[in-house]
Design a protein around this nucleic acid. Sequence first.
DNA 1: CTGAAAGCGCTTACAG
DNA 2: CTGAAAGCGCTTACAG
Lengths: 350, 350
Amino acid sequence: MMPKKKSERVTIRTVAEDAGVSVAAVSKVLRDAYGVSEALRAKVQASMTTLGYRPHAAARGMRGQTYTLGVLFSDIRNPFFADIMSGVNSALERTQYQPLLGISNSGPSNELAIVNAMIDRQMDGLILVAPRMASLEASLIAERVPIVMIGHHERAATDLDTVNNDDALGAGIVVRHLAEGGHRKIAFLNIQLELAHGFLVTTQREIGYRATMTELGLGRNIHVLYAEQTVRDTQTAIKHLLASKHRPDAIFCWTDFIAFQALSVARDMGLSVPGDVAIVGYDNTTDCDLAQNALTSIDQSGQVLGLQSARLLIERIKGRTQAEHFVVTPRLVVRGSSKARSHKGADAEG
Amino acid sequence: MMPKKKSERVTIRTVAEDAGVSVAAVSKVLRDAYGVSEALRAKVQASMTTLGYRPHAAARGMRGQTYTLGVLFSDIRNPFFADIMSGVNSALERTQYQPLLGISNSGPSNELAIVNAMIDRQMDGLILVAPRMASLEASLIAERVPIVMIGHHERAATDLDTVNNDDALGAGIVVRHLAEGGHRKIAFLNIQLELAHGFLVTTQREIGYRATMTELGLGRNIHVLYAEQTVRDTQTAIKHLLASKHRPDAIFCWTDFIAFQALSVARDMGLSVPGDVAIVGYDNTTDCDLAQNALTSIDQSGQVLGLQSARLLIERIKGRTQAEHFVVTPRLVVRGSSKARSHKGADAEG
DNA sequence: CTGAAAGCGCTTACAG
DNA sequence: CTGAAAGCGCTTACAG
């Protein structure tokens, strides 16, 4: 019947008493702050271990850091995010920082709500993977908390860091690969956005697609379709495209997730891939390797992106004020879904 | 050049001054506590809105709740978890609670580290989806913080709540379905675990599989394979199985994620599904619908599980001490991967 | 129904 | 190098 929670908690004060030092000294050891002798540090650490001391994050958050980093994902279904998370985790492995995820399945307004919730919880910094977020909004958030954005090409931003692969280049690589395989009528399937700004990954991919098509003399075959990020909308768009008189030779989907839908629709319609239509995705998620998908895709090294963003964020938290913009070079991974169409040659038409 | 952060923050005190009431009164409005007049509440809320007040979660956490719920996922790649999360989100939509995810890709020891990090951050309660966690460990955690476990059949637990589908029943339904389709040599592909306890989902599925096989007179065909949760291990196990002299008619995989690998291996080996071998999964994740998968699976209503666990958790936080164990009835969704083998009849052998 | 005051467990200047 | 004291923004008894 002893009173629960009554002086049960081991605090910094308990540790201080046990070690025979001041509360301030314990705090310094806890924070790895300068100005503590090795002897004192050792004593304190011994006491912490003996007593099983755990720092109270809320209390730390009142004055200093919470050692918590927020990660915002706009979508948890896309397996690409798992790669990013794995990179974040490994970057933080031996640090005091704990990453915690917020998931916003229901669009931009929800994204802001989660960001606010993270700021309310005094998180030290945020990694935002929110491809639909407006540029202005990102700046406003950056005024309140250090942030790193993945999938936002804010090259000129000074108040926040960005981590990306070169999406325009990646899209160009895809188009070139398909053209070399004899494909001419290459369509691009993009996501429907309210505001299509140049800094968005999807827009960058579209820019790369258009530029390379033109460059290869395939300008007249440029065909961009937009669909909402729902299964129904996506499948409908693909169905229309594949049923039309001017069916494309190849469909380049802005992300694997959509490309898997395209494979499904093509199969349902009795079309062979890549015989009737080649299909290429983006992200090189693990499912691309499955034989039933065998999806050609662009590897943008999600793990590297995650790792790098966590590192940059911690640098920011520790005081860096200069912005950094990290860009990874994308890499094509060819699989069955885009094998060469024919041997008629790979020279451009017109 | 005004001093940043200097009295800039709008606190409960600012609001109190603006509204002309006491700090305690504002706190009560914030917490929806009893004993405040409508007039006072209105005044305070008006001030909050005007000043753009946001509660400081760390400060709240010092004395009361943080309104933060932790969700632990052992794996972010399995799309089933997205269903759970979607349920959790909708349950918390109109509440003050914010769910934050921790991801432990690297096994049980990491799971505990994340749970500790969540407790350190004074989260009000946790939802654990950690199929490999030991029973004792769960109890120890439950002593420190309210928890709900998904995927743990701790029917007798009094200190924590559980939310599950009836895994043994689900597995039985699969076996029955395959047997009715003329399959006799039905193998079960399970995950490799250090401790296979009866409360784990995977064990429950195996129990259901064995019992139903026996019941249908197929006891001599019982064949259980174990593989680690990695692509390489899984594929190797499946390859061995499909290449053996006594190749099964059907493989029942403990989760869709593994079943997709099985489809891939079968295809690579030139086997037709379901002609040469039928394949069935568990979870009915969205990818089952893709034509290239067309995977028969068991729907255990991930969204309902998530919704229910969030509700139960909040009840616990609000004071319920009686344990609740919620069980959903699983439902078979038949697709192409398990079409009937032949018309030789569906009667049992021997 | 309303408010003044103590205190949650830390960190941060500031003295010594 | 070490420590005493103030204070972060709330909640919680306790009085009125």
